[in-house]
């Protein structure tokens, strides 16, 4: 699969009949989409900074990168919110049990060790 998704839409042909035609994409949608993606990227970058500054755990970065909120993340790993919130702090993260680490790693599809590793930077490049 390529990065581009070729969509179809309903359009009126020259005789005024509706036909299903390939959509060429159009600007308002692209603007709205790229605005949304910039927002996601900014949030991820801000999270990265906070983790580097020692204000939050790497988990906080992964969560933000995957556009999740604490309640959503808690639902995914099947833990209480307060527990996840604790794991989002560096202190709580350090004390996390291996079983819990495994759950997060499975969710984000990285190895348990890679959970600690942070990328240099984040570029979420939507292809429009």
């Amino acid at each position: 699969m390529g990065g581009e998704l070729s969509e179809v839409c309903y359009a009126v042909d020259e005789r005024g009949r509706y036909v299903v035609a390939p959509s060429l994409g159009w600007e308002p949608k692209n603007i709205a989409n790229s605005q949304a993606w910039q927002e996601v990227e900014q949030r991820a970058l801000a999270a990265l900074d906070r983790v580097r500054a020692g204000e939050a755990s790497p988990l906080f970065f992964h969560m933000t990168r995957h556009q999740m909120s604490t309640p959503l993340l808690a639902r995914y790993v099947g833990l209480f919110r307060w527990r996840v919130r604790r794991h989002l702090t560096p202190k709580g993260y350090a004390k996390m049990s291996p079983a819990h680490r495994q759950r997060y790693a499975d969710l984000f599809e990285v190895s348990v060790d890679d959970l600690d590793r942070l990328p240099e930077s984040v570029t979420l490049t939507p292809r429009y």
Binding site: G2, L5, N33, Q67, P126
Partner: peptide
Amino acid sequence: PYFPEAYRIH
């Protein structure tokens, strides 16, 4: 996984 990344939202 077959969704382009740009379309992935919760």
